[in-house]
Write a protein that binds this DNA or RNA. Structure first.
Lengths: 189, 189
DNA sequence: CAGGTGATGTCAGTTCCTGTTATCACTATA
DNA sequence: TATAGTGATAACAGGAACTGACATCACCTG
């Protein structure tokens, strides 16, 4: 038998999510999270830089997927379509864990501090996408604008997807959001 | 002579900005800020909810200006153009204090925690704009998408404006960013 | 089997932030 | 003009988030 139970990080993540849901983020202490995971406060801070980060650790995986998808997209693809390709490549990640996504989002929506962190993570993803586009030779203002537009489309689609009673296709919603966005920016008054 | 020096809030703002610039945000303690302003740590927290907020207090003014401008815009104006009207109405606010904006932005750019707060404030502005559009009868996904597009255009323009050696017109830059954004979302591959 | 390694625990300390109560100049009113 | 507010501030105590330093101890490696 090993000295330590395996998967300390996972246990901490689970304990944190559970507690945040049970009594709210502010009313949960890091010591409590660690205790429930059978660990120490100090150990929590070895795995996560702060109390919020525990809900956002998965974003790293997403970033890699986005960047890889953009790198391998056909050369001729337009910037905005490259971004959409990346967003769609990540859709299964969400479909696989819809319930988890729902719970997590409910916690975030209930706390401004967590919303801040979510926005920062989103911005980091946009920056990674921008950088990946630049490497494909997309010029500078275009690259970041395309990334930002993609983020908006995803955000809009995700907000609808995560709380619908039925289970719509996230890709579909992304495309719809993008179409509406295109309609808005068109000069037809 | 009055018991207290006037403009406690302003003194705290100034002291905070100075110290954040001198030694960085993390290396500055709230007690130090208060001392420099001739006040107490406790008093700092009466004026500002937290250590970051001191840099963002002005946003409230901006929000009001945006909302008012949208409320008084001609009925026939398209959503995206209504948003641009609001953004342009606020341009003088920035032109008036370019140096302050520059210093403030440099501090924010050097600290992730401050970037989080900036993103949250930006999201709050977008939400206010969305709400103002809804009150004009703009349907739901369109209102928030138009607000978000406006925010992106402004962000892009501001980033260029705040650090250019010459003094370009912010309105001009906003329109340019929006034009590029329109080009990106157009279906011409 | 000695010594290194890595995950964890222990402990002490700083800073952010909050609640509570006390001052005290100024103001309104009797 | 005495008195009772009122509002901005100070003083103090305390909780919780985080950090640094060092100890422990199962496991691995030669």
């Amino acid at each position: 038998m090993s000295r330590w139970e395996p998967n300390a990080r996972g246990r901490l993540e689970q304990a944190a999510l559970d507690l945040y849901r049970e009594r709210g983020f502010d009313q949960t202490t890091v010591t409590e999270i660690a205790e429930r995971a059978g660990l120490t406060e100090r150990t929590f801070f070895r795995y996560f830089t702060d109390k919020r980060e525990v809900l956002f650790w998965g974003q790293e995986r997403l970033r890699e997927l986005y960047v890889r998808t953009i790198e391998t997209a056909p050369e001729s693809t337009a910037p905005i379509d490259t971004v959409v390709l990346a967003l769609e490549a990540a859709v299964p990640v969400f479909h696989e864990r819809r319930e988890l996504a729902r719970q997590r989002q409910a916690v975030i929506d209930a706390n401004p501090g967590l919303q801040e962190r979510e926005l920062l993570k989103r911005a980091a993803l946009a920056a990674a996408v921008t950088e990946a586009l630049r490497k494909r030779g997309v010029a500078d203002p275009v690259a970041s604008l395309a990334a930002d537009v993609g983020v908006i489309a995803f955000k809009t689609a995700f907000a609808r997807w995560v709380n619908s009673p039925d289970e719509p296709d996230l890709s579909q919603l992304i495309r719809e959001a993008l179409d509406q966005l295109k309609a808005i920016t068109r000069d037809d008054r």
